[in-house]
């Protein structure tokens, strides 16, 4: 028993060092812009740069659109498949995994090749380009959104709830809005935060479609030109992502508590 506990601690320490050391080193480096003193100067430089706010604002905007489109696309699809076409779930799961195996560079080249020419000409206008960017991100976010929504739907008895609502006179629109979406609140929030984190830091698709308007390419540019600011940006980006992860945990814990209460009765 003691022996097992010792090795558990060894692996925990090794794992923690693997993650924490590079992060600590980056943080430490970001504080050394002024020679001989530790300061937040590089952070100040980042925050006073208007490009930082413009790019992060743009990326957040795109992320919000991506989340809305993803949820509106995935929730009804997965719901319908669980309700009426359970035999197709495996195919949908396979499709949702494709963004993990197809590199973003292949995706963006494919998109530009198909949609920049006739009959679409999407890249000729701002709206078209942004729509293409959102579409690309919807594909990139698909694995996260699908998994979260699918797990959320697995936790509720979709068939019985739907039939109960139907017998009370509800149509599918009412069922989705009044019952399915509210019951997937935590799953939708989890997928939304994961999508937000993915989109805000994404480089490949953004750099090909909108260049340094997006936060990912902006971070890359800073990395090439400003040594200390790039480190502080990395830390800010980490903080940003981690705070969303923390929020997911917080919300999931609330849900778990209510579920266990139900089970205890």
């Amino acid at each position: 028993m003691k022996r097992r506990s010792f090795w558990s601690w060894v692996w925990i320490v090794l794992g923690s060092l693997y993650f924490i050391l590079p992060l600590y080193s980056t943080f430490d480096f970001s504080l050394r812009e002024k020679k001989g003193v530790l300061s937040f100067l590089s952070y100040k430089n980042v925050f006073i740069d208007p490009n930082f706010w413009d790019t992060i604002g743009f990326s957040l905007e795109i992320a919000i659109f991506t989340i809305i489109v993803s949820i509106l696309l995935v929730v009804p699809t997965v719901y319908w498949i669980r309700l009426r076409l359970p035999q197709l779930r495996g195919i949908l799961e396979f499709i949702s995994m494709l963004p993990f195996v197809i590199p973003a560079i292949v995706l963006v080249f494919g998109m530009i090749r198909v949609f920049s020419g006739a009959p679409f000409f999407l890249t000729d206008t701002y709206f078209g380009t942004y729509a293409l960017l959102v579409a690309g991100y919807v594909v990139l976010a698909l694995p996260y959104v699908f998994r979260a929504v699918d797990t959320g739907l697995a936790a509720i008895d979709v068939v019985s709830l739907t039939q109960a609502a139907q017998s009370l006179g509800a149509n599918f629109g009412t069922i989705l809005i009044r019952l399915i979406f509210p019951n997937l609140k935590v799953a939708i929030l989890s997928s939304a935060f994961l999508t937000l984190a993915t989109v805000v830091g994404e480089y490949t698709i953004a750099s090909f479609l909108v260049g340094i308007k997006a936060f990912g390419p902006y971070m890359s540019l800073i990395g090439q030109n400003k040594t200390y600011e790039s480190s502080s940006l990395a830390i800010i980006s980490f903080m940003f992502t981690w705070s969303f992860m923390g929020l997911i945990q917080l919300l999931s814990r609330g849900k778990a508590a209510s579920t266990s209460l139900a089970g205890a009765r």
Partner: peptide, 9 residues
Amino acid sequence: FQSYALFPN
């Protein structure tokens, strides 16, 4: 229904 099917939300 056997499973009650009450709307949890």
